[in-house]
């Protein structure tokens, strides 16, 4: 119950911030529209909508990490977390409270992204529900990174890490805009050692209804998500009990 009450509070904190709303919901739409417009005005098509939508959907998840980091780091810096730690709230209430609203935003963000893509030519199908599930699983990676940064760093540093570094890493190493094999070599190896490109390939295979191509990407995403999320819970619990 406390977890749900706290989740309600975190939802309000995020959705009442216009910048969060812009980056969470509007920015993916703008990107889709922009890239589709570019695509229509170049002689050779660079992106097709079936390829682009999963890339944008995964890239948009990097903003979820920013929301997680910002909310938690701000609660730490304003001592709001200290106030809450003197109440009967438990560590699990905090984790659920911070995570649940972000999960809901992920679903809304993904649906918005696919509906926009529909108007740009993507054929919607029931299978896209599986894409939303895959994006939700992928979001655990980003939420965990956000919670880790929010737990360990100041608000400024956490926002810098998630808002600048992570978004750029995701953009470059996910294959959202270009195929990482075009660069190849160490770049490709690094990209495939990280989860971002696997997440994009996973969602692309679902959108293409080529379910056998989901593997091993699904395994990589699940393992990264489970490890990072467990780590973020462990670090959060450690930090609030370390005194």
């Amino acid at each position: 119950m406390r977890a749900l009450v706290f989740a309600g509070r975190c939802t309000k904190e995020i959705v009442r911030d216009p910048i969060s709303l812009f980056f969470g919901i509007a920015f993916p739409i703008i990107l889709l529209l922009l890239l589709t417009a570019i695509n229509r005005n170049v002689p050779e098509a660079l992106f097709n909508i079936e390829h682009l939508t999963p890339g944008i959907a995964v890239f948009s998840l990097s903003f979820i990490a920013l929301f997680a980091a910002q909310t938690l780091a701000k609660d730490r810096s304003t001592s709001y977390l200290i106030r809450l730690l003197t109440t009967p709230m438990r560590a699990s209430d905090f984790i659920i409270g911070y995570t649940l609203p972000l999960g809901i935003i992920v679903v809304l963000q993904s649906i918005t992204c696919f509906i926009t893509a529909y108007f740009l030519g993507l054929e919607l199908s029931f299978n896209h529900v599986f894409a939303f599930i895959a994006l939700l699983i992928t979001s655990t990676i980003f939420i965990a990174i956000g919670l880790l940064c929010g737990t360990l760093f100041s608000e400024k540093a956490a926002v810098g890490l998630c808002g600048a570094l992570l978004t750029n890493l995701t953009a470059l190493l996910s294959g959202a805009w270009f195929d990482v094999s075009l660069i190849g070599g160490a770049f490709e190896k690094v990209a495939y050692a990280l989860p971002f490109v696997h997440a994009v390939d996973l969602v692309r295979s679902i959108v293409a209804e080529d379910f056998s191509a989901m593997f091993p990407h699904l395994y990589v995403v699940v393992v990264y998500g489970a490890v990072l999320f467990s780590l973020s819970i462990f670090i959060f619990k450690y930090k609030i009990q370390q005194n």
Partner: peptide, 13 residues
């Protein structure tokens, strides 16, 4: 109950 040194309120509520 504790009222911490910083104002410690939820800013957007």
């Amino acid at each position: 109950a504790v009222s911490p040194q910083e104002t410690s309120i939820a800013p957007n509520l």
